[in-house]
Nucleic acid binder design. Structure first.
Lengths: 112, 112
DNA sequence: ACGATACTGAAGTCCATACTTGACTAAGAT
DNA sequence: ATCTTAGTCAAGTATGGACTTCAGTATCGT
């Protein structure tokens, strides 16, 4: 629904992906949903730290969580991923288009 | 040569894009090459700061610079952009594929 | 030669943030 | 009821990084 450039904060999205622990969480969630403590286990950090990362990942659309009993189940959310893809699509036209035109211009200097 | 997932420092690439000043530099360079001081002017930071950002952007493949006389000419480099696109392509298969299978398995309830 | 311009390097400041600990609540197990 | 497990909240620490100033170096204009 939200059009490409209306993406609220692409900076927060990139910032979220800039952290190795958060990327590790996402890698783990590709395998399927997980609880907070099971996410923490292999990463060598406390569950508190994971909770903080999860908040960032939720706010940026990479993770969705739901609390069932005392366990919080975390799963991938594709919204954040689509934000990145949309950014790439927008900037592909902008960046490569401009670069191609530059190439055209430089190649055409025999055409007065 | 090296396939997608071998990209060593995707973290550095995302970190580079996470900063608003660096994204502003890239936006400016879409218009064409620029000197360091001309990049600094509209951004309200010192040329030293721009120089530091340029180093990050060069190391992550977003900017190429060449020094001509006393002026450093900065232009867009598509390598960094392609790194992001490649990451998106790899994770599209991984993420959406897995999500689709999950959807098949669970026929899950969808909010939203 | 002289001054102005364009940048660079070292060093320091300051704030964001990734992490911790410890006290707490809530839910399941016995 | 009690103990244990799963997670949360509030502070606090500490390291990284975005930025500055100041002192250079090199190049250009006159």
């Amino acid at each position: 629904m939200t059009p490409a450039l209306a993406s609220p904060d692409i900076g927060r999205v990139f910032h979220a992906l800039g952290d190795p622990t958060r990327r590790a969480i996402l890698d783990r969630l590709v395998e399927g949903p997980s609880s907070v403590s099971r996410l923490a286990e292999p990463l060598g950090v406390t569950v508190t730290a994971i909770g903080q990362h999860l908040q960032v990942l939720e706010e940026t659309g990479f993770v969705r969580t739901r609390k069932l009993g005392r366990v919080r189940s975390c799963s991938l959310d594709l919204a954040g991923f689509r934000t990145v893809e949309q950014w790439a699509a927008d900037h592909r036209a902008l960046w490569t288009g401009r670069m191609d035109r530059l190439g055209d211009l430089l190649a055409e200097d025999d055409d007065g």
